[in-house]
Structures are given as structure tokens and as C-alpha cells.
């Protein structure tokens, strides 16, 4: 019995705090410690779901996810090859461009949103551009640093076995820098999602961010909390999915860290 309990405890240890958090969310406002108008109790928030409508919520989530997917794919497709070329073939150019790239990467995409709208028009393209702008930098920088950190000994070893440049890139450089690239992609994806919600509140007529904006305008406070909850759950889900992909792709990474410790 004790053993069952302790194994249960170990399994739940990471979620205890969440359980407490949700319990407090319900108890604190409903017991009157805080004004329930401003902090809607959890169950009231959940009852908001049928009011918005399951279909509407699902549509919001799917539309937002579609935008994240498009933006993330485009920024990956742009940043990865650019990083490979800059770090692998043109290191001098990379050094030359670095200050400018760092400077640009510090500009929050929202500031540029009006500019994007002027250039790319109102609607989808403006939103997607914001996402691309946010995701491109971490992917690009991590790709470059990943390639710069490839162990020269491994490259030397491959060269000694007559590997040509393409083989060295595919068999040595790419797997060596994969952990760093994946880290960049993961932060890019997280940023994509965060920025998307923001961009949707600014200029969209669908999606989770738009729904939040509408709730704000109509002062439907429970709906704001509900959308925040959904955004957090979807964000976590995306993160878990990516972690899983990372784990299946990089089987050697964790152990390599062990060996260093």
C-alpha cells in the first residue's frame, strides 16, 4: 500500500502545485476573499465554454494553429538554409552581418506591425509576417552557433576518410548541430505562438487572440479567463509535441550531457 502511495506521489509530484493553483482559483473568489467579478472562479470560467460554443472555440484554436504553422514553416524554411550558408560557407559574411542581424532581432514585431500592414496588406499576411519576424531570429542564431560549435576533430576525421563536402555536411555538421537547431526551433515556435495571440488581438477577425479582444471589448471577464486558459493549454501542448519530436530525433543528446557531468 505504502509503495503504491509513494509511486503515485512520485507521479503526481510535478502537478501538485497546479492542483493547488486551480483549487485556489476556485476557492479564493467564491469564498469572497477577492471580488468574484474581477477574478472569476474556475467553474464559472469553464461554464463559459458552452456560451461561446464548442464549435466557435474549436474554430478559433484551429485558425490560430494554422497561422502558427504557416508562419513557423516559412521562418524555418528561410532561417535554416540562411544559417547553413552563413555559418558553413560564408563565415566572414556572417561576422559582417552579425551586428545588423542582432540589431534587427531586438525590434519587437508589434512595433513593425503597422509597417507590415502597409507592405503586406491588412489581414492574414500582416499577422503571418509578425510571426515570421519573431521566429526567424532564434532559429537563425541557433543554427549559426550550432554549426560554429561542431567539433573540428569530427570534421577532420571525416575528411581523413575521404568524405566529400556534402557528406561532411549531411553526416557530421547536420547531426552535430541538430540539438542547437532544435533548441532554436523550439524557442521560435514558442515565440510564434505568443506573438500570434498578440497579433490577432490587433488585426484579425478570427482566432484565439481575436476572441480575447472581443471579450475585452464587451467586458465579458469570464471569457477572458477562459481564453487565457485555452491559450495556455494549447501552448503547452505545442511545447510537449515539439519536445517529443526532439527526443525521437536526438537520441544521443541526453546521454552526452551525462558523460560530461
Amino acid at each position: 500500500m505504502n509503495r503504491v502511495l509513494s509511486s503515485l506521489h512520485r507521479r503526481l509530484a510535478s502537478v501538485y502545485l497546479l492542483i493547488v493553483f486551480f483549487a485556489l482559483w476556485q476557492i479564493v473568489p467564491s469564498a469572497g476573499f477577492v471580488n468574484a467579478t474581477y477574478l472569476t472562479p474556475l467553474f464559472r470560467v469553464i461554464r463559459e465554454i458552452p456560451i461561446v460554443g464548442y464549435f466557435n472555440l474549436a474554430t478559433d484554436v484551429l485558425i490560430s494553429l494554422k497561422r502558427v504553422a504557416i508562419g513557423f514553416l516559412i521562418s524555418t524554411a528561410a532561417a535554416l538554409p540562411l544559417g547553413f550558408v552563413l555559418a558553413g560557407a560564408l563565415p566572414k559574411l556572417a561576422k559582417f552581418l552579425n551586428p545588423l542581424l542582432l540589431f534587427l532581432s531586438q525590434i519587437p514585431p508589434f512595433i513593425l506591425f503597422p509597417v507590415f500592414v502597409i507592405i503586406f496588406g491588412v489581414g492574414e499576411s500582416g499577422i503571418v509576417t509578425v510571426i515570421i519576424w519573431s521566429a526567424v531570429w532564434p532559429i537563425l542564431f541557433n543554427t549559426i552557433s550550432g554549426i560554429n560549435m561542431v567539433d573540428p576533430l569530427l570534421v577532420k576525421c571525416a575528411r581523413s576518410m575521404c568524405a566529400d563536402k556534402l557528406t561532411i555536411f549531411l553526416e557530421v555538421v547536420l547531426p552535430s548541430s541538430l540539438p542547437s537547431i532544435m533548441t532554436g526551433m523550439r524557442s521560435g515556435l514558442t515565440l510564434c505562438f505568443l506573438m500570434l495571440i498578440g497579433a490577432e488581438t490587433m488585426g484579425a477577425n478570427s482566432g484565439m487572440g481575436w476572441e480575447i479582444n472581443m471579450a475585452q471589448r464587451m467586458a465579458v471577464i469570464p471569457r477572458i479567463y477562459l481564453m487565457a486558459l485555452i491559450v495556455a493549454v494549447v501552448g503547452l501542448a505545442i511545447n510537449y509535441l515539439f519536445e517529443w519530436i526532439e527526443r525521437t530525433l536526438i537520441t544521443w543528446k541526453e546521454a552526452e550531457r551525462d558523460a560530461l557531468a
Binding site: L153, K156, C157
Partner: peptide
């Protein structure tokens, strides 16, 4: 240039960890 008639064992193993 490099040639497969020569095999090299480098200092520090240089094994591909993946």
C-alpha cells in the same frame, strides 16, 4: 590529399556520438 589507403586514429577518439 586524404586517401583511404591511410587510416587515422585521432587523439580524443573523435567518434560520432549519434
Amino acid at each position: 590529399g586524404p586517401d583511404l589507403r591511410r587510416g587515422i586514429v585521432l587523439q580524443g577518439y573523435a567518434l560520432f556520438p549519434w
